[in-house]
Design a protein around this nucleic acid. Structure first.
Lengths: 313, 313
DNA sequence: TAATAGCCATAAGATTATCTTATGCGACGA
DNA sequence: TCGTCGCATAAGATAATCTTATGGCTATTA
């Protein structure tokens, strides 16, 4: 057929070894194999590549010209293989992650820090966006994976797994009367009677809370304040303006520093699933696989949590 | 085995056609052939190169990276083949010819002019040197062919063919008494008695002359002048300082312009063989072959004139 | 000069790569 | 839910390539 890299590789070996036999020995093939390949190369090009001297061979003018190309082709091929090996070995690549706000602010930075430490050569990209955007950008390939609080998309190409159940907990200023030593544990009704700082209507978090309360026949009695930002809510609570229900993820620092405290609550637990979104298994590249592995290591996924559309099987 | 240009060519076809079947159709191979080659490529690299979507395929990140290399490799391979085709088609190459003085000055310029006209893209190089130098430079590859007056080298690697018998003729000023209308044709003894302008002792030309005369029992009687240069001899003869014996090749112009004339001589003819030297057949490149063909066309070689060392056969 | 060793070419047979045809399986659109 | 499209797989055929054995030519050595 046509000329391929093998022909050129053998040709180069001969040129550099100065003889067919020497080249054969050096690259561990039989001498006739070299004879044939070089002969075929010469036949296909219609040119003599080597002067056959008694002892060894010497390049012809055409051979010298070809040697330059053979070397360049060989070097390029090696470079290509190296590049591929780098992708395989996570020394090269790109990882683009999209996350919804809470995850993006309170969970992902740590995770990506660890990722960067493990694979410092991977180009890291990270965006905070709403669920809809993440879904769209996953579909068009702009993102490799997404982490969302919202409802998973109804698209079969995208795998959706719950990787963590986020606890929503009531918080208050540490000197809140309900936290005094002799105070009893709250029940749900008592909590609802507290002055409550909430997110705006339409917020996913608020909807989750209200739906859960409604299910228990309760509703918030005193929404003293409506804020559009979790951080603002935390500060308002820390200032003693009321209590609030927020994701456990968002208050780690404040719990440690004593700026906020969790109100003990009895007989009620409010969680929402956090979803890991990405393309189905066969299409993931190494950088993405490594990210998913890291995520699964930190937050073991719930078995059977994958949500997929109806299948024939 | 290893990755070769065929794998990459098919890979590229798929990437550019946007699907296995489309690529197969476009390059006239069966679709499974593509599946297998791309599959093997992926297996060898340990990477997925294409996202298999329902309809058609799409490059992965690794695939995009590889595509760049595949394109560069393909382009380089095409360039190499084109370069080889140019050498084959005499659109590229070098021709280095060495010649002894007489041939170099009076014969080769015309010949190389014709060569240049036929193959304008061949890089032409042309040196005048003595036979020994030419032989050496042929051996080390600095020259592709040599044309000499001297004795051929006793080297079996170099083919030596007589391509022309150079006539050495006696010349005189056109008003020389021996050229008058009623003068009779010279014989050899009479010529030897003329005042003769000769090359220095040791010159190849002079040796040839003296040997030939000695063979006939004659010798030059009156060497009036010794000059180291054929052109000087011609001018001396034209000035009426004597007669000389020179190569027929060197006096074409002067015969036409009437500056010199040939002395008719009876019963004696002096020729010396001119040799064409070059490597044996199997090692000649196209540019050299074309030169030899041109030489043979202008000066058909004597059959059986090739001189070679003793062989077993 | 003859014998010898080194090196490339060739032949025959075995092995490996690659292609083709036929078919399966999953995805998409009506 | 059913065809249709497109890739994957299997089996058999073909072509490319390798290896061992051998021959011829060249250069070296006695």
């Amino acid at each position: 057929m046509g000329v391929n890299l093998n022909h050129l590789f053998l040709f180069r070996a001969v040129a550099e070894a100065g003889g067919f036999s020497r080249a054969a020995e050096r690259i561990h093939v039989s001498q006739p194999a070299i004879s044939m390949q070089v002969g075929e190369l010469e036949a296909q090009l219609g040119l003599t590549l080597f002067h056959r001297l008694g002892r060894g061979v010497k390049l012809t003018a055409a051979g010298q010209l070809l040697l330059g190309y053979a070397q360049r082709l060989g070097a390029l091929a090696v470079e290509a293989e190296r590049a591929m090996a780098e992708v395989r070995g996570l020394c090269r690549g790109r990882l683009a992650i999209g996350a919804s706000t809470t995850i993006g602010v309170y969970l992902l930075p740590n995770l990506l820090g660890e990722y960067r430490r493990r694979y410092p050569d991977i180009d890291l990209q990270f965006d905070i966006a709403n669920t809809e955007d993440i879904e769209r950008r996953l579909a068009d390939g702009t993102l490799d994976a997404g982490l969302t609080e919202g409802l998973p998309p109804n698209c079969d190409e995208i795998e959706t797994v719950v990787f963590l159940r986020d606890q929503l907990v009531p918080i208050a200023r540490p000197d809140h009367p309900r936290l005094s030593a002799d105070s009893k544990v709250l029940n749900l009704r008592q909590l609802c009677a507290e002055p409550m700082i909430v997110r705006e209507a339409g917020s996913g978090t608020r909807e989750v809370i209200e739906r859960a309360l409604a299910k228990r026949g309760e509703k918030l009695q005193r929404t003293t304040m409506v804020l559009g930002n979790t951080e603002a809510i935390k500060r308002a609570v820390a200032a003693g303006l009321g209590v609030a229900i927020v994701s456990h993820l968002t208050i780690q620092t404040e719990l440690v520093s004593g700026q906020l405290a969790i109100l003990p609550l009895r007989g009620f637990e409010l969680t929402r699933p956090l979803h890991r979104l990405c393309w189905r298994n066969r299409d993931r590249d190494p950088a993405t696989l490594a990210f998913l592995a890291l995520l699964d290591q930190r937050y073991p996924p719930e078995v059977g949590s994958e949500r997929r559309l109806t299948h024939k099987s």
